[in-house]
Simulated assay, not measured.
Amino acid sequence: MTTDLTPCTAPTTTPDVHAARPGARRGRRLRGAAPLLWAAPPVALLAVFFLYPLALVVRQSVQPDTGGVSLKPYADVFASPAFREALWTTVWLALASTAGCLVLGFLLALVIAFVPFPGARAVARFIDVFLSFPSFLITLALLFVYGRTGLANGLWTGATGAPDGPFAFLTTPWGVLLAEVTYFTPFVMRPLLAAFAQLDTAQLEAAGSLGARAPRIVRQVIWPEALPALAAGGSLVLVLCLNEFGIVLFTGAKGVTTLPMLVYGKAILESDYPGACVVAVVNVLISVGLYGLYRVVSRRAGA
């Protein structure tokens, strides 16, 4: 009688690969659909609250009051001297304000970052708070100081006995320029202070120990580090100045008509809705183009 000592092995079963595939496919479909599900609500909100109103503005710009679809509103607006004057005023005010913000912002950021004085940190933090202020608030403060019945004119008339003070520039383009430079300069200072905070102080110390004076240190050491931040901040300020409405309105500069003010005048005062939409479309195209430039500059600058 022989005994079979061969170990008994349990029958092995191979997993049914084909049976597991439908579940894996469903999982992949769910994982692939998850980004779409997450993206659907913000895209829907964007379409309802931004794209749809913008589409209505574009549609209204090609629908004259006589009915139908025509480019006549564009031809009428482009042929209007008021539009050309508003476009020129908008461009030169935006360029001049941006230049003023760059110069003033660079000088103030230099003082705050590299000139030790009590309260420098508090001033730097106040700049962050200043960015949240509405533009009309700054304009209102300037009116209290330099308006026709403001503090400066009051002191002048009280000291000289004159019926009127000499400060009447707030209702001119120069008043709008001053208000925009005052309000938008911190938008240049903020990226500059961030760039200066990353600057290696050893370079400044080495330059000073080699006998370099402050102007040369600024020109050869600080200026190259500041260029990317200046480019990014200046591009942003240019876009914001092109679309500024509150400052021009609150200064009461009746002779200053920018594109946003022209939209307001045509829509509210003249009831020329096709013309207002044409100006709005032009303003949007200019702003989007400059914003694209701002994004390119910011990406290359790493800001």
Rank of each mutant, 00 (worst) to 15 (best):
residue 187 F to K: 02
residue 188 V to C: 12
residue 188 V to D: 11
residue 189 M to Y: 09
residue 190 R to P: 12
residue 191 P to H: 02
residue 192 L to I: 11
residue 193 L to R: 05
residue 194 A to R: 14
residue 195 A to N: 06
residue 195 A to M: 06
residue 195 A to Y: 02
residue 195 A to G: 03
residue 195 A to P: 04
residue 198 Q to R: 15
residue 199 L to V: 00
residue 200 D to V: 08
residue 200 D to P: 06
residue 201 T to G: 14
residue 201 T to P: 12
residue 203 Q to R: 15
residue 205 E to P: 09
residue 206 A to P: 05
residue 206 A to C: 06
residue 208 G to L: 12
residue 209 S to L: 14
residue 210 L to C: 08
residue 210 L to I: 02
residue 212 A to K: 12
residue 212 A to D: 10
residue 214 A to M: 15
residue 214 A to E: 15
residue 216 R to E: 13
residue 216 R to V: 14
residue 219 R to H: 07
residue 223 W to V: 06
residue 223 W to K: 07
residue 224 P to T: 02
residue 225 E to H: 15
residue 228 P to E: 04
residue 228 P to T: 03
residue 229 A to I: 00
residue 234 G to Q: 12
residue 235 S to D: 04
residue 235 S to T: 12
residue 236 L to T: 09
residue 238 L to P: 05
residue 238 L to H: 02
residue 239 V to R: 04
residue 239 V to S: 04
residue 240 L to Y: 00
residue 242 L to A: 09
residue 244 E to C: 06
residue 244 E to V: 01
residue 245 F to K: 02
residue 245 F to N: 05
residue 247 I to L: 15
residue 248 V to G: 06
residue 249 L to K: 14
residue 249 L to I: 01
residue 250 F to D: 14
residue 252 G to C: 04
residue 252 G to T: 01
residue 253 A to Q: 00
residue 254 K to Y: 10
residue 254 K to N: 14
residue 257 T to D: 11
residue 258 T to K: 08
residue 258 T to S: 05
residue 258 T to V: 09
residue 261 M to Y: 10
residue 262 L to Y: 01
residue 262 L to T: 07
residue 263 V to P: 08
residue 264 Y to M: 00
residue 266 K to G: 06
residue 267 A to G: 02
residue 269 L to H: 10
residue 270 E to N: 15
residue 270 E to C: 09
residue 271 S to M: 00
residue 273 Y to D: 00
residue 273 Y to N: 07
residue 274 P to T: 08
residue 276 A to K: 05
residue 280 A to K: 08
residue 281 V to N: 00
